[in-house]
Simulated scan of single mutants.
Amino acid sequence: MKTMELVFLLIFFPVTLSVKHSLKYFTTMSSGVKNFPDYVAVGLVDEVQWGYCDSISNTVEGKQDWSQKMFEDDPQHMELYTERCLSSQHKYKAHIDILKQQLNQTEGVHIFQRMHGCEWDDETGEVNGFVQFGYDGEDFIAFDLKTLTWIAPKPQAVITKHKWDRDTAHNEIRNYFITQECPEFVKRYLDLGKSSLLRTELPSVFLLQKTPSSPVSCHATGFHPYRAMMFWRKDGEELHEDVEHGEILLNHDGSFQMSVDLNLSSVTPEDWRRYECVFHLSGAKNDIVTKLDKKVIRTNWVSPSEFPAGPVIGGVVGLLLLLAVCITGVFIWRRRDNGFRPANSSDSSSSDPSSVKDAALD
């Protein structure tokens, strides 16, 4: 009887799945980085970059056709963001100077970041948001929307917390932007860019492997929107062990890519047929299922007996040097679900939290 009632409800009262859309702003102030803007700000809607500004150009630039047209049609909107770009870089330069002074840091590369924005549910209208600051890749202070007060995850930020808690007027302004203005911006941008932002595209899925002993990577690229998940399963059951999930990354054309690796070191060749990779895209009717099959795995690995060792050693050394340069140049940390990524400080002074003083930002 209960089954028949459930079927009746599904037929006459179909379930509509809500979609959460987001608008996020990432600003970065750096010190000690050569040949790079001191200040960089980007805006993302549904994880797609649509706006950009730095301390060299001092002008907001639309990164999508629809956002560039928006700025052309609405100069006041562009002036609003340009003004914020100019004012923020001066304010954050003061912040990073204060932190360096009070934390006894005189050399090295240092990064001060702010992340803020909102998430809007198009079915329920529910709005969530965040305002968070980080220093040298670690959480420094965050805004609590429920209490309109600040959270200091590190002892050095306690003085700043008390100072900012007392500024109730400014906290009310932050809350109003996140809960009122930000959702309206989300709706406006989604409407202007609906042909690209609200499109649904399935990815191409490949199985990749560096060497015969390496994990097999299930790689999906070219999908949109970013609301997707991918996993390995065995005999129809999702696997959690020997599996490593990668982040969803943005492609140059506004689509996304992601990977999930499977360690097969303890799996016999006879059992490979029991494994498959599943890609699920929000809004798509069917999943993409890829069977684990050696014949379809793509690799650039070649047996050592098939080529001379000299050029290979030279190539490997060259790649390692290139990798070292790339790692050295990376200093803008991506946001995790719970904050900034930890980073090693290059400053010559002590980075031990217990050995530094409290830092109070103005």
Rank of each mutant, 00 (worst) to 15 (best):
G254Q: 04
P155C: 03
P225G: 05
G254S: 05
S196L: 01
E247Q: 08
L207D: 06
P225H: 07
N251L: 14
G193L: 10
E238I: 13
P215I: 01
I151G: 04
W150V: 06
K163P: 00
Y176I: 07
A142H: 05
F143I: 00
M229V: 11
V216M: 00
E247A: 13
I178P: 04
D235N: 15
H224I: 06
P153R: 11
K194T: 08
H224L: 11
F177T: 02
L145P: 02
K163Y: 12
H170W: 12
S204T: 13
R233S: 02
R227P: 00
N175V: 00
P212S: 03
E201Y: 05
R233M: 13
I248S: 03
E238Q: 15
R174F: 08
D144M: 02
A220F: 08
L145Y: 01
S213D: 06
R188W: 09
E172S: 14
P153G: 10
F231H: 14
P203W: 05
H224N: 10
G254L: 07
H240D: 06
L192P: 00
H224M: 00
Y176F: 14
E237T: 14
Q209L: 09
E181Q: 15
L148A: 08
E238W: 03
A142C: 08
Q257D: 10
H252A: 13
T179V: 12
F231S: 02
G236H: 04
F206W: 07
P212Y: 07
P203L: 02
K161F: 09
K161A: 06
I151N: 11
M258F: 05
Q180L: 01
T200N: 04
Y189W: 10
H240P: 02
C182W: 11
E201S: 10
L207F: 12
D167Q: 13
T168L: 04
N251C: 11
A169K: 11
L249M: 13
P215M: 00
V205S: 04
L208F: 07
E244N: 07
L250K: 15
K210C: 05
V260N: 12
M258C: 14
K163N: 09
D242K: 15
D165Q: 09
S259K: 11
L197Y: 04
Y226C: 02
